[in-house]
C-alpha cells in the first residue's frame, strides 16, 4: 500500500477525470486478456483499440498510444462503422451506440474482439467488460459467457477484481 501511495504522490494532487481513469483501465485490460492462438501473426506487432461512436474523448487515449502490453504496441483509432472493425483487437463501444447495441453484439460476438463499454446494462447485453462508477471510483464488470464466446481468456486476476455477469 505504501509503495502504491509513493508512486501516486505526484499524480494524486492532479485529480484525474473519469475518462482519463477509464482510459487507463482500458489500456490495462489489454494486459490480462489472451487472444486465441494464431490471432497475432508474425508481422502484427500491435494491439489495436478501436473506438466506436462518440462521447468518449478520444484524446484521453493519447497517453497510452505507443505503450506496450504483452510485448505488443498499443494503438487506437476511431471507427465510423462496424464495417471498419477489421484488425480491431479491442472495441470500445461508446454510450452513443446504446440504441443499436444488440446489433453490434450480434455482429462481433463470435469474433476474437474484446468488447468494452461504459454504459449501464451493456454487460448484460453481451459486452465483455463494462466500466461503471461507484463512489467516485471506477469499477468494472465482466460478462464471462461473452468472453468465452469470443474465445478470449481473461486472467483470473482480473476476474477477481470484477463483478461477474453471466448471460441470462
Amino acid at each position: 500500500m505504501s509503495i502504491f501511495l509513493g508512486k501516486l504522490l505526484e499524480a494524486e494532487l492532479y485529480k484525474f477525470s473519469e475518462y482519463e481513469v477509464k482510459a487507463a483501465f482500458i489500456f490495462n485490460f489489454s494486459k490480462f486478456v489472451s487472444w486465441p492462438e494464431g490471432h497475432f501473426s508474425k508481422r502484427k506487432r500491435t494491439i489495436n483499440l478501436c473506438i466506436l461512436g462518440t462521447g468518449f474523448p478520444l484524446n484521453t487515449f493519447d497517453y497510452f498510444e505507443g505503450e506496450t502490453a504483452q510485448n505488443y504496441t498499443f494503438t487506437k483509432k476511431r471507427v465510423k462503422d462496424l464495417s471498419d472493425i477489421d484488425g480491431c483487437d479491442m472495441l470500445f463501444i461508446c454510450s452513443s451506440e446504446r440504441f443499436r447495441i444488440d446489433q453490434i453484439i450480434k455482429t462481433v460476438k463470435n469474433m476474437p474482439i474484446l468488447t468494452i463499454g461504459d454504459t449501464e446494462g451493456f454487460a448484460e447485453k453481451g459486452v465483455i467488460i463494462n466500466l461503471y462508477m461507484e463512489e467516485n471510483k471506477v469499477r468494472f464488470e465482466i460478462n464471462i459467457d461473452a468472453a468465452r464466446q469470443a474465445r478470449l481468456s481473461i486472467s483470473s486476476h482480473l476476474l477477481k477484481l470484477a463483478r461477474i455477469i453471466q448471460n441470462k
Binding site: 502504491f4 508512486k7 501516486l8 505526484e10 473519469e18 487507463a24 471510483k137 471506477v138
Partner: peptide, 15 residues
C-alpha cells in the same frame, strides 16, 4: 503516471 499504474492502483483512484 496513469500509464504506469496497475489495475488495483487504478481502482483506488478517486476521481
Amino acid at each position: 503516471k496513469l500509464t504506469k499504474l496497475n489495475i488495483e492502483e487504478l481502482m483506488n483512484i478517486e476521481v
